[in-house]
Amino acid sequence: MTGASATSLLSAAAGGDESAWAELVRRYTPVVYSVIRAYDLSRADAADVNQTVWLRLVEQLGRVREPEALPGWLATTARRECYRLSRLSRRAQPVDPYDQSLQTYHGLSRELAAMAPAPDDELLRAERRQALREGFVQLPPRCQALLALLTTDPPMSYREVAERLGIPIGSIGPTQARCLRRLRKCPAIVEFLGASAIGTNGGEPDGAVAAGR
């Protein structure tokens, strides 16, 4: 299940396979969570957004036309619902009916604040991690096994990795390099780079300047 594509997971889940659904949840909850975290919502509102997003996906299961677009769909849906709840909690606050101008002014600025997907580089980092997770899933099983062992914490020695995989120690380095080359060129990463080529000029962290003074 862990190596299955989003396409096969979605169709299995649509057919009633609960373990496929569990795998979708395990794989994509971090995406939903990273979007929600970027908004200044109460804990209850944040939990409501998460629940709404997954209920929406259940209702769309048999209708998803482009399974590859799932992470984007989840992020967009989460963003929209965060915005909706940020508006609702504002409505719940009492307003002075005589102070129309101030209300309009604050309303607009808060609206803009809520719409901006908060710290740009944090979102970018989350999206890159998601692309890496998806790219990893697209690698051949031997590459997945090797890279998973090489990234464990605490790190495993080459000898232990070699023993576990039944390969000579000398082949680990070259195989790792070959697997990483494949990872850089895999569809998930290429697609992510294509999609983010437009509008990722926010990568320069402003904080670096402030921190370096």
Binding site: V25, R26, T29, P30, V32, Y33, S34, A47, N50, Q51, W54, R128, R129, Q130, L132, R133, F136, L147, A148, L150, T151, T152, D153, Q176, L180, L183, R184
Partner: peptide, 23 residues
């Protein structure tokens, strides 16, 4: 790249259990 991949695979962040169970 190996380090970044490791972070992506193993540090999914503190996603609360409540989020997972609701999902």
């Amino acid at each position: 790249l190996t380090t970044e991949l490791g972070a992506a695979l193993w540090d999914t962040g503190p996603v609360s259990e409540a989020y997972l169970s609701a999902a």
